[in-house]
Design a protein around this nucleic acid. Structure first.
Lengths: 286, 286
DNA sequence: TTCTTTTATGTAGTTTTATTTCATTTTCAG
DNA sequence: CTGAAAATGAAATAAAACTACATAAAAGAA
C-alpha cells in the first residue's frame, strides 16, 4: 500500500515521539526523502533511533529503505490520499483523481491477468472463421472499439449492440466462429442468454468479464480483469478502460501471431487513410 | 525524465566501466535500488567510485540520491525500458508493455491537461441546450462512450459516427447547442468541415484533439491531451484511452456542477438497471 | 612507432550516515 | 506511591558513501 497513506492511517498507533516523526514526514514528504536520518530527527525534534524505530514499524528494513518506499509512493503520483472524488473538489482535484485512479486500476488489471489465457484467446481468434463482438450499454463502445481494430485485419468480423441482432447472429453461427462477449459484471441476463445461444450453435465464446459470474460460467474462455468495483458511484469508468486495454492486448497478440507479411496489409490500410488528411500525419483516427 | 529510459538512452555516452554499471542496473533495477554501492559495484564488476561517478553523470547528488530517482521511475511502472512491442515478445511481455505504456500515456496526459479549460468545458456543457458527440472511425467509440455517459443526465444528447448525419445535425443546430468533436490528430478533413459547419450555425464547438491542428483552429474550445504519438505502428491505442478518461473527467465535472439533487436521478437510473441482472450487483454495464 | 597528455579506473583513507546497545526517563496498572 | 513495562535518547559501533590520490588505459602528437 501507498506509504503516505499508510502513515496517515496508522497515526494513532504510533507513540508520542513516533507521531512527531510521522507528522514531520507528512508535513513535507519531499523534504523527508532528501534528508538524512539526523536531519529528519532534528526536524521532528526526536532522536535518531526514534526515527529508525518509526521506519521499522512501517515494515521497512530501516531508514534508507523507508526513504525508498516513500519516494515510490510520491512518484506514484498519489498526492491524493483519498482518490475518490468529493463533492467539493475543484477541476484540478477531480481531474487528477480520475486519472490516478484509472492508472491504479490498470495496474491492478495488469497484475491480475492470466497471460496463458490471453495466449489461448489469441490462438482461438487467429484460427476463427468469423469473429463477433457483442456488448450491451456501456460495454457496446468497447465492442465497437474491438471491431474497429480487428476490421483492419481483413477477416470476417462483426459487432452488434442490439440484442436482437446478437441473437440472430448467434443462431447463424457454426463451428469455427468466435463470439467475444463484453460485460463488466457478467450478470446481464440478456447477454448470458446470448452466450448460451452461441454455444448451442457451436460457436466458441470468449468473455471479457468478471470471474465466476453467470456469464463466465457460460463461456468457453474467460478473460477476467480482477478490477475492483468502480469507485465512482454513478457509472462505470475505470473498469471499461481496462477492457479496452485488454482489447489492445488481444489485437497486438493477433498481429504478432500472424507474422510479418500480414503486417504489411495493415500499413497499406494506413497509407490509404492518410489521403483523407491534412498534410503531416503518421497517425490516424479511423 | 524517467531515469531508466535516461540510462538506456545515454548508454553510449558512458565509459566502458560506467556502461557496466548501467547494464547491471538495467538488468535488474529492483535489485539495484535495494543494494548498497559496494554491492552494486561488485555486481557490475567495477569499483565503488565508478558507481558513484556514474550516478553523478546522471545529474544526481550521489548514489543514495540516484537510488531515490530510480525508485521513483520504477514506481511509475516502467520495468520495460523499451515499451514498444517486439516481433518476438511473448504474451507476458506484450501484455505488460501495452498496459504500462497506456499508464505512462495517461500520466503524460494528466500532466499536460489544462484544468482551466476543463472547467470552462464543464461550464459550457452544463449550460448547453443540446450536446452532440461526433467522431469518425476509431474516435467514434469514444463518442459513443460519451453518449452513454451523458445520456444518463436526462438532457438532450446525441452521437453520430456517420458523416452525413453529423452534417445534418450541424445544419440544424443553433445557439446554445454544444458539439463535441473527437479526433486524435485533428487532421481529418471531413471532421474539420463539420466543425466549420457547426460554427456557422452558432453552435459551440469543443474539440478533443491535438493542439494547433486544423480542427483545433476551427473550434471554440480545445482540450488537447499532449499525448505522444502512438508508439504502435499499426493503430491508435493509448491516445484513445486518454480521450476516454478525459470524457470521464468531463462527466464527473458535469455531475459535480449539477449538485446533489441532480445526482439522485443517476441513482434512480442505476437501481432500475439492476432489475435486468442476476442477483448481487452494484455495478453496471449499461 | 614512442612519448606525452588526457581520461578512466581503482585503492585506501576519511567522512558521513545509519544502527545497535544500553542507560534513563516516562507511563500506567496495581 | 511503587514497580514493571514501554518509550526515548546518548553514546558507541557498524555500515555506507565519498574523496583524494595513484595507477592504468586510451588517445593524440611527433
Amino acid at each position: 500500500m501507498n506509504t503516505l497513506e499508510l502513515i496517515k492511517k496508522n497515526l494513532d498507533t504510533f507513540s508520542k515521539s513516533e507521531r512527531k516523526v510521522a507528522e514531520a514526514i507528512l508535513a513535507s514528504p519531499e523534504t523527508a526523502i532528501h534528508s538524512s536520518i539526523a536531519n529528519l530527527a532534528k526536524m521532528a525534534e526526536v532522536s535518531e533511533p526514534t526515527v529508525n524505530r518509526f521506519c521499522r514499524r512501517l515494515d521497512t528494513k530501516g531508514f534508507p529503505d523507508f526513504k525508498l518506499h516513500l519516494a515510490q509512493s510520491l512518484a506514484n503520483g498519489t498526492p491524493y490520499v483519498n482518490r475518490n472524488v468529493n463533492e467539493d473538489d475543484g477541476p484540478e482535484a477531480y481531474t487528477s483523481k480520475i486519472f490516478e485512479s484509472t492508472m491504479a486500476c490498470l495496474n491492478t488489471a495488469k497484475n491480475g491477468l492470466d497471460t496463458n489465457l490471453i495466449n489461448r484467446a489469441v490462438d482461438v481468434l487467429t484460427q476463427a472463421n468469423k469473429i463477433s463482438f457483442f456488448g450491451l450499454g456501456a460495454s457496446s463502445s468497447v465492442a465497437h472499439d474491438a471491431l474497429n481494430k480487428f476490421f483492419r485485419f481483413n477477416i470476417p468480423v462483426s459487432c452488434f449492440d442490439d440484442i436482437v441482432m446478437q441473437r440472430m447472429s448467434c443462431i447463424n453461427s457454426s463451428e469455427g466462429d468466435v463470439i467475444v462477449l463484453i460485460s463488466h459484471t457478467g450478470r446481464t441476463k440478456l447477454l448470458v442468454e446470448v452466450a448460451q445461444l452461441a454455444r448451442e450453435n457451436d460457436a466458441f465464446v470468449i468473455a471479457l468479464t468478471e470471474a465466476n459470474s453467470p456469464l463466465a460460467e457460460q463461456s468457453n474462455l474467460v478473460l477476467s480483469l480482477g478490477v475492483p468495483e468502480d469507485t465512482d458511484v454513478y457509472m462505470p469508468m475505470s473498469s471499461r478502460i481496462a477492457q479496452l486495454v485488454l482489447i489492445d492486448v488481444l489485437t497486438t497478440g493477433f498481429t504478432l501471431r500472424r507474422g510479418a507479411k500480414f503486417r504489411d496489409n495493415l500499413k497499406k490500410v494506413k497509407v490509404d487513410i492518410q489521403d483523407s488528411r491534412f498534410e503531416k500525419t503518421n497517425d490516424e483516427d479511423f
